[in-house]
């Protein structure tokens, strides 16, 4: 029996109380491995981003900051009560996901989300957002973004397990959620998130790339 190679999945999910991602901004290089791996993994349409990487300019600073953003899998997710068809659901490990067979594209969830984490797939009309790669975690793999991240910025773990190394990392470095004033109790935690970076992300917490002031998107008009 050949040895099991490191990429072969165990086939079994980890038992988790609160599955989440810790984003260590000290390491991020803005490479988009996360956002693009996600798109490839889930066949996400062009124009839809489950995960985005913002290049944030701060006034008077020569250096840009990198900011990956995705669904925060909020503990008090407002998208869930907003959904009229109960398609937006919470899993046993706390992750928030779309039950596609129930979704009829009303966009109430999109309006409710302070993190602009949800979009509609242009062809199916179904709500599209991060589900922490359920099909991967079900067989013991990490979400695609975490598996791809080359700098160790994204890490997946049980944020309610004090022995989980990712949870410990978050604790040790005073990780916090993005714009906690939105009061949704986001599960995704950031290490090294500067208030000035938070403040610089204007006009809604997460913008669609077309309207962004992301530096490499050039608007045709004005």
């Amino acid at each position: 029996m050949p040895e099991r190679l490191p990429w072969e999945p165990s086939g079994k999910p980890r038992a988790m109380k609160r599955a989440g991602i810790v984003i260590d901004l000290r390491r991020c290089i803005g490479c988009h491995a996360c956002s693009v791996s996600c798109k490839t993994e889930h066949d996400v349409a062009l124009g839809v981003f489950r995960t985005r990487v913002r290049y944030v300019e701060r006034p008077g600073k020569a250096q840009l900051s990198f900011l990956p953003m995705l669904c925060m899998h909020c503990q008090d997710a407002p998208c869930i009560p907003a959904c009229p068809t109960t398609a937006m659901s919470k899993g046993e490990d706390g992750r928030v996901y779309v039950n596609e067979s129930k979704c009829d594209g009303t966009t109430d969830c999109i309006a409710a989300c302070p993190y602009d984490a949800i979009q509609l797939d242009p062809q199916t009309g179904i709500a599209d957002k991060c589900d922490l790669c359920q099909h991967r975690t079900d067989v013991g793999m990490d979400p695609a973004c975490v598996a791809s991240c080359p700098s160790g910025t994204l890490r997946f773990g049980d944020l309610d397990d004090p022995d989980d190394p990712v949870s410990k990392l978050a604790q040790e470095h005073g990780a916090r959620g993005f714009r906690e004033d939105a009061k949704t109790r986001p599960t995704v935690q950031y290490i090294g998130l500067r208030p000035s970076v938070e403040a610089a992300v204007t006009g809604g917490i997460q913008l669609h790339p077309e309207e962004d002031e992301v530096i490499y998107v050039q608007k045709k008009s004005d």
């Binding site: 490479c31 491995a33 956002s35 693009v36 791996s37 490839t40 598996a147 791809s148 080359p150």
Partner: peptide, 16 residues
């Protein structure tokens, strides 16, 4: 496509 962890150079990592 994912990284090959047996590659001691790239250590299982990829970029976009």
């Amino acid at each position: 496509i994912e990284g090959n962890p047996l590659d001691i150079n790239s250590r299982g990592k990829i970029c976009s």
